[in-house]
Lab assay of single mutants.
Amino acid sequence: DVEPGKFYKGVVTRIEKYGASINLNEQVRGLLRPRDMISLRLENLNVGDEIIVQAIDVRPEKREIDFKYIP
């Protein structure tokens, strides 16, 4: 289970102007929005990149997770 405040290694699977889709595994994925990137710009991400993200909002009833990137 993903817990708010914990850090996870994820893989960038899609990049859109509203954010990047991050997969932690086949069943768990979430969104990294541009506003939640401290020192990383969306255009510097590539599909397949592995990054460390922090879960900031977990809504299991909607199967949604928001991530934050902290270098």
Rank of each mutant, 00 (worst) to 15 (best):
E64K: 06
D66R: 15
V12L: 02
D49M: 13
S39W: 14
R35F: 06
V58K: 04
R59L: 06
L42R: 02
E3Y: 12
R33T: 05
M37I: 07
S21R: 12
K6D: 03
G5A: 03
E64W: 12
G19N: 03
I51H: 00
G10Y: 04
I56W: 06
V28L: 13
P34I: 11
G48Q: 01
F67E: 04
Y8S: 00
G30Y: 02
K62Y: 09
V2K: 02
G19D: 03
L32I: 05
A55F: 07
D1W: 15
V2F: 10
L42T: 04
N23I: 13
K68H: 05
V2H: 04
R41Y: 10
K17E: 13
L32P: 02
D1V: 14
S21V: 15
I38K: 09
L40R: 06
A20T: 03
K9G: 02
D1I: 14
Q54M: 15
I65Y: 09
R41F: 11
G10K: 00
R41N: 12
K62T: 13
V11C: 07
N44W: 14
V53M: 03
G30V: 07
A55C: 15
D49H: 03
G30M: 04
P4R: 13
L24E: 01
K9T: 09
S39D: 15
L31Y: 06
V53A: 01
R14L: 10
L40Y: 03
L45Y: 02
P60E: 08
D66S: 13
K68R: 15
E16F: 14
E16I: 05
G30E: 02
S39I: 09
L32G: 01
F7N: 04
D49S: 03
I56Y: 10
V12N: 00
P4A: 12
V53W: 02
E64N: 06
V53F: 04
E16W: 15
E3R: 13
V11P: 00
Y8L: 03
E43C: 12
P34H: 06
K62P: 07
K17V: 12
T13H: 04
A55P: 03
V58C: 09
I38R: 07
G30A: 03
R59H: 08
V53E: 00
P71D: 08
V28N: 06
N25C: 11
